[in-house]
Design a protein around this nucleic acid. Structure first.
Lengths: 151, 151
DNA sequence: TTTGAATAATAATTCAAA
DNA sequence: TTTGAATTATTATTCAAA
């Protein structure tokens, strides 16, 4: 089926890019060899319940559905409470140490959280390395993680 | 200040109505005696980081930002766990007693929670007076607060 | 700084077609 | 059912003004 595959691409594109208008999806999909019009994207967005979020920096960006975000945060909280050991920050990187085996899960959840300040991730067995845009961002992430664990 | 008051109304309207376009805000605000144009609403929405969510029933509706809601609830939980003493309900009012100095913080957080059943708030030093729409609502709030503390 | 009027830009839908 | 082209509707911004 064509539509589902396209919507999968859309989900991927969301994570990798900062998309602030539907035309961007059209352009990015074209690069993947998928040609559609804005009308179709509008329908996909409605169907996938994507939301356009005004960011703090004055731009807009399409994001994953609210419900999904909530679920992701819940899972992240649960996983962290079970597996968290410590965080360390160095430059723009935040290293999250967790119990052996939990690294990949944490990485995956943090990716799904779609934090705008996260640049990239790397999952080890007992650790998750989160590369942010700046040192400030890394500290922010560290703070968020620790707050989740404490709560 | 005019803008802040308007944005408070917007937050209220959000809860009470299903708003699917900015013009609706213009119309609803007019009924409250506040006359603004769509342009201003657009700016408010950006500033308040409201999102337009595609609902499952095929409609759209403006909502509060998820992230913000989550954060507020977390802060409220944390603050209550630290400072909570007791609640008392009388008529449509719920009085939350807290350790000295924490009253204003609690009030602010409860405001941010945007409970639809809250009519107004008043912050003392060691207490927060929350005025609800009805006695039932006040009891409900009291229950919510106590559950948060216990959890 | 904040705003409205006008406008530009973006998004949603209609309607025909496959 | 799903889609594109065209269109309409909605939203964001520009620009002047207070």
């Amino acid at each position: 089926m064509k539509k589902q595959e396209r919507q999968r691409y859309i989900r991927e594109l969301l994570k990798a890019n900062n998309i602030d208008k539907q035309e961007d999806f059209v352009i990015l999909l074209k690069k993947e060899g998928i040609t559609v019009t804005q009308a179709t994207i509008s329908r996909d967005i409605k169907e996938m319940q994507l939301i356009k979020v005004p960011a703090t920096d004055g731009t807009y960006s399409y994001n994953l559905p609210v419900q999904k975000q909530l679920n992701t945060e819940k899972k992240l909280t649960k996983t962290l409470k079970d597996a968290f050991i410590s965080t360390d920050v160095q430059n723009e990187m935040c290293l999250i140490k967790v119990t052996p085996g939990s690294g990949p899960a944490i990485v995956s959840l943090i990716e799904q959280m779609n934090y705008s300040f996260v640049f990239g991730t790397l999952g080890g067995d007992g650790s998750a390395l989160i590369i942010c845009h700046s040192n400030k961002d890394a500290l922010k992430l560290s703070r968020i993680i620790n707050e989740i664990v404490i709560e």
